[in-house]
Design a protein around this nucleic acid. Structure first.
Lengths: 208, 208
DNA sequence: CTTTGTGAATTCGTTCACAGCA
DNA sequence: TGCTGTGAACGAATTCACAAAG
């Protein structure tokens, strides 16, 4: 991969989702000002982003919804698909599983893990729940390189270390713990209370 | 408020949390390289950020943990405190309530709303659960200007409109719906599946 | 006309590098 | 020494503005 900025990638993911929704609304083409608007961005930004992945529209028709969705997919997605492990099926893990009915083209398979024997062996929204001790076997078998940590705070770092031992390369961390990882591992921190503090500030100080 | 960038504010929130944890570890002072490290940032960035809020350390002692925590608080927090409403006590809303036992200095009071009569009237982690129809009374009464939307997708926009009618200024949106709001309202989108897609990409393409 | 694609200009954010200090 | 505070340099990201196209 060459020289596409992180910000651009993040926006492409959003564009794709919007295009996917537009497709189901039978909308076949869209102009940059409208797409920018829907994505919380600007027309110029949209055109710039699409330029970096080499996608071309036309002045008369703008961008073809389905075609652009596919092109972004080709750019972003692992052609082999990407399975994901969700560690911890408490409230948080369960709510994530609730969203999985949405068809996300890239996320081919989602597998859950927990230690609670009343959950292990059950199926939630088509996702099997396995015991954490089975990660060792299942993660490499299914070629899973992405995991969500939704375990209690105290288990966070230990779970993280375990995941990395079993070949995980990217982690979505919902616990309030800042994980220590080697720097070839990608971690996205999603501390819910920190997010609340952000909103609390910006709600008050409207000038961003 | 003058000229502090959004990025700086976001980092200050993280610094504060780290300082709070250090305080409980009986650590009384810290240098910028260490704080930068813990916050996933750099020494220069930390010094620059603290400069913008006018906080001063000393070359010999670095920054005083407790004092800096307080100064960041004075800068970020609403002196009147900030109450928060959580709309929807399903899996997602419940997991948020699970995190509330953490003492966050700014978030003085958290109130939950749902339509499920089996939940209304109960108390979860010290948060009362009210019926959504009571928002009209309670939101202005408690001076709540920040809300979390954790309702089913189909209710998201309607809930959002309702909140804005009742004086909400900032919204944390966990649903996959992109909310339409007037531009004096601050919205933070926290679509979990989008977050997963990001990690999925960056886990594979390590070069950020 | 209104749109795209894009070089150029601009704004924004980060890092450098060093004087001054304990 | 090893730190802080900060002007200056740098680099990244966004926006401008316009030629080309239907």
């Amino acid at each position: 991969m060459e020289k596409v900025s992180r910000k651009t990638i993040e926006r492409l993911i959003i564009y794709r989702k919007i295009l996917n929704q537009l497709k189901y609304s039978e909308i076949s083409n869209i102009y940059s000002p409208k797409l920018g608007d829907l994505a919380g961005s600007t027309a110029a930004q949209v055109r710039r982003d699409l330029m970096t992945i080499g996608y071309n529209g036309t002045p008369s028709k703008g961008y073809d919804v389905g075609d652009l969705e596919n092109s972004i997919g080709e750019y972003l997605d692992n052609p082999q698909g990407q399975s994901v492990a969700i560690i911890g099926v408490g409230n948080l893990g369960s709510s994530l599983l609730d969203f999985c009915y949405w068809r996300y083209p890239n996320l081919s398979k989602i597998i859950a893990f927990d230690i609670d024997s009343s959950k292990v062996g059950t199926e939630i929204n088509n996702c099997m729940v396995y015991h954490i001790d089975d990660m060792k076997k299942i993660l490499p078998n299914e070629n899973i390189e992405v995991a969500v940590i939704a375990v209690p705070e105290k288990e966070a770092q230990r779970t993280c270390d375990l995941l990395i031992n079993h070949g995980i390369k990217g982690i979505l961390n919902y616990t309030p713990v800042r994980l220590l990882v080697p720097d070839n591992i990608f971690v996205e921190e999603l501390d819910m209370m920190i997010a609340l503090e952000r909103v609390s500030y910006f709600a008050r100080v409207k000038k961003i």
